[in-house]
Design a protein around this nucleic acid. Sequence first.
DNA 1: TTTT
DNA 2: TTTT
Lengths: 148, 148, 148, 148
Amino acid sequence: MASVNKVILVGNLGKDPEVRHLEGGVAVARFPIATSETFKDKNGEKQERTEWHNIVVWRGLADVAEKYLKKGQSVYIEGKIRTSNYQDKEGIQRYSTEIVADNMTMLGGRSDAGNGNQNQYSGGTSAGNNRTETPAPAFEGEPDDLPF
Amino acid sequence: MASVNKVILVGNLGKDPEVRHLEGGVAVARFPIATSETFKDKNGEKQERTEWHNIVVWRGLADVAEKYLKKGQSVYIEGKIRTSNYQDKEGIQRYSTEIVADNMTMLGGRSDAGNGNQNQYSGGTSAGNNRTETPAPAFEGEPDDLPF
Amino acid sequence: MASVNKVILVGNLGKDPEVRHLEGGVAVARFPIATSETFKDKNGEKQERTEWHNIVVWRGLADVAEKYLKKGQSVYIEGKIRTSNYQDKEGIQRYSTEIVADNMTMLGGRSDAGNGNQNQYSGGTSAGNNRTETPAPAFEGEPDDLPF
Amino acid sequence: MASVNKVILVGNLGKDPEVRHLEGGVAVARFPIATSETFKDKNGEKQERTEWHNIVVWRGLADVAEKYLKKGQSVYIEGKIRTSNYQDKEGIQRYSTEIVADNMTMLGGRSDAGNGNQNQYSGGTSAGNNRTETPAPAFEGEPDDLPF
DNA sequence: TTTT
DNA sequence: TTTT
């Protein structure tokens, strides 16, 4: 089938990451980031539109998000689009679109509350090798078990 | 600002494009494309997950989509994520995420029903609109004059 | 740090891959791919420019390249830019720019001499295999069931 | 031909942009940006490798570069790879690889010497011309003639 | 809910 | 030649 599902975002966190630790110790972090664009409307007036993206990161990246990412900060995100459907409390079928990130780079923030870190993290594991881009350990877990 | 909202997809059309012409003659085409990935579940069995993306293209790209894209074909898409909310017929608040494409390249298809075209198109053109991405008309200027 | 070096290419192989096996058994494959663009020159005539990219893939991806990629085929490449300098035989300092790929998807080819494979492979290591990103088999599934 | 040539970089300017104005008033700016990656060598020691990219921007983007970009600043760049060949003063055939950018976003800098601007610019638009994509001289040459 |  |  030959397919590619790739998202690249640079935006600001709307909130601090929320982190959960699943059974087995696997960490998941979630946070929203905003991207904005400006355009001129038909009256020639400048308008801004903000788009909110729900980011999900797993494992090592979730740890990094928990430690280093804060509301307001700017971040580079690379990942893929994932839409899930679920029933809400009223039993209504709903769709939720998220970006599952596998690469993340802090770009600094508004005031940078005590954080000068600007480092890149890649999803995955590995020790004792000199790869930069990295592997990606086993995906276990029923999609339906996942918290989205 | 400093933000980036970029999506790159390679996938297959799930349906022929649906094209509408707005007042003023502006064309909009919509079509779904599928991307797939396979992974091993916890029993080590191969699983496949297909993701559906709703693509929207405007103006010239909509014309191209109408003329050349067919269900089953493979296409490269570059664009941005856009989530809209609206009320459905029951008055329930819903969200819809689309990819607004500004660049599109046909990659061939399943059987390629009569279509050998494999060309790239870039969004663009036209006046009186609020596009950010831009046109790409004639090239002028002598390459040999260029400073490199 | 905070840096990103990302290349995305879709193009055709100019030659079959050349594969080498280093001491230790690590495989490296190299092959050129062409991307083209057309533009109108100042006389309004259509011109084409082809760009050649030197692709390098390591380990598992090199094996895949060796087995499945052939001159003329179309391929999706994701990687990074890497420029090396070296002295040529005359002792002249030279620069060579390559794309070190960490993700690769076959998109089919000109005539596809005996090859129907269209699968995605991700860089990363090893055996026992712990991939997340993966291949992508046949497209089936009823678009009409989809929520759009 | 169905091809894509896309580069995405986030890096720091190694120098202030150099701007030239061609006959006809077209502006071109050039500047190098650095991307870095760290990895562990075989002794487990942290190593850093820096890659230098020569960025070229035209017209409106060149004006933006001239006004706002300074040595040390961080910038997001989107563009394409372009390799040119030329003879140096000794008549030696040489190759030069550049990134022709069509999208640029300032991400701030080390100390941000008087610059709080963080805005995104897209190639194109405006009066006189509206090209985004840039020049592309003739391609000639057999793949087999190429230096790889 | 961010940022400019 | 940048940055951490």
